[in-house]
Nucleic acid binder design. Structure first.
Lengths: 237, 237
DNA sequence: GCGCAAACCGAACGTCGTTCTATGTTGACC
DNA sequence: GGTCAACATAGAACGACGTTCGGTTTGCGC
């Protein structure tokens, strides 16, 4: 990850970084301990350097997070590289969406920052383009294709950052609820829902058992299929 | 908005607040100048009091924003009060989703915080319940209803916070781009997209004209209709 | 070696959320 | 009306944060 600290066997007094190392360190901090753990001081400590050095590579924290966001999209692009020319365009769209979902869901910090400028970051644009190329294989107008791809990306970002935050999100409250860990937030919600008056909340009681046992990705895929089915129909399939 | 400062004609030395005034002030600050404008100090100044007083009503900034988020949902509930018993359940769902969209879209600060615990805030849960009651009028299984409503809410939150941020979002950079204002971000993106190589980005060029002239709400409704159409089909319509 | 630009460093500044303690205000009871 | 406890407000103080800035170190062409 971090690059070399030595030149020809001698020990350096000062660390040597790179933009790649800075961004990779930021992603690692975010993934390990959540958004609040990414500070310029903690990142500098991780890289073995000083606070000010980071500003040589990025001009602000916003740019740092934007680069971190774009960096993880590399994985999505790699995972969907093979599906671009494959089989059914709708299946290809679904596969890309699922790959996108799997990158966002475990990263609560991502969803909030994708919404900022998903069309401006280079890798985000590449993903958008790839999905669009599949849409171009469907019998739709340009406007319908634009709407369809926008709907899919919006759905992925919205649902992924909405559902994928059941484990601890900020690396806080380690003492209060410690035994249950993963399922604590879900169980709390279920308990709360069951305690609601059934007369006022018939639907909540209607689906609380489904909610208690649901798998996030299943819910995501089910909704995605509804959306893709609507697209299929519009394309006259 | 703020409550009385006087008791029986005498001028008080100290300000008098209330939870409602605190939350309303927070919403006003967020709407006027974006998320970064909401600080305990600026809110205290607006209420004419001290910093510490706010902590009598809320225990943290997270709670303050959670209460502010839930507060604006009151508008959605009011706007969709009449549609609960009306006509087609799918039309009712669409109307609620659009009302929800119209509240989130002009408020960039909302989207990020709805994703945190949309099912725990009381008004968010009420809206979820209302949508669900419409889903119960459709010929679906409990699981399918759960998936359908989750998909709609996720879609609304994702697309609304994704699209609705074309005007200035943080009340910063007032000097750099001042003449154009509203359309500056959109025009910048269009310009950038047109400059891309057409061979690598055929879809972007295919829809850039649609993108340049699009209306956010139209895109939202178009995608929503695709999703609702998929739900209709699943219900055997 | 020398000079110079690139890269790095950490002290310092202002702002933020939060805590703490002191002070003011209200209403009930005698 | 006086007393007391609970309620409510106030602002100074603290530590952490993003960011700035002047100075230091490094590597490379000459």
């Amino acid at each position: 990850m971090a690059d070399a600290r030595t030149t020809r066997g001698g020990t350096r007094q000062r660390a040597s970084h790179s933009l790649e190392a800075v961004v990779a360190g930021a992603v690692a901090l975010l993934d390990e301990a959540g958004e609040s753990a990414l500070t310029f001081r903690s990142l500098a400590a991780r890289l073995g350097g000083g606070v000010g050095s980071i500003y040589w590579y990025v001009s602000s924290k916003d740019e740092l997070i934007a680069r971190a966001s774009d960096h993880v999209l590399t994985d999505v692009l790699a995972a969907t590289e093979s599906v671009t020319t494959a089989e059914d365009p709708v299946d290809a769209l679904r596969e890309m969406a699922v790959a996108f979902y799997r990158v966002i869901a475990p990263r609560p910090w991502l969803g909030a920052y994708f919404q900022r400028d998903s069309g401006l970051q280079p890798n985000g644009l590449r993903l958008y383009e790839r999905m669009g190329q599949q849409a171009m294989r469907l019998d739709l107008t340009a406007r319908q294709r634009f709407h369809a791809v926008s709907a899919v990306t919006g759905y992925v970002i919205g649902v992924a950052s909405d559902l994928g935050r059941h484990p601890q999100d900020g690396a806080a409250q380690d003492l209060a609820t410690f035994d249950r860990e993963d399922t604590s937030r879900l169980d709390d919600a279920v308990e709360h829902w069951r305690a609601l008056p059934e007369a006022e909340y018939p639907f909540v009681h209607h689906i609380v058992d489904e909610f208690a046992t649901h798998d996030d990705e299943d819910v995501f895929v089910a909704g995605l299929d509804l959306l893709l089915d609507g697209i299929c129909r519009q394309a006259g399939r």
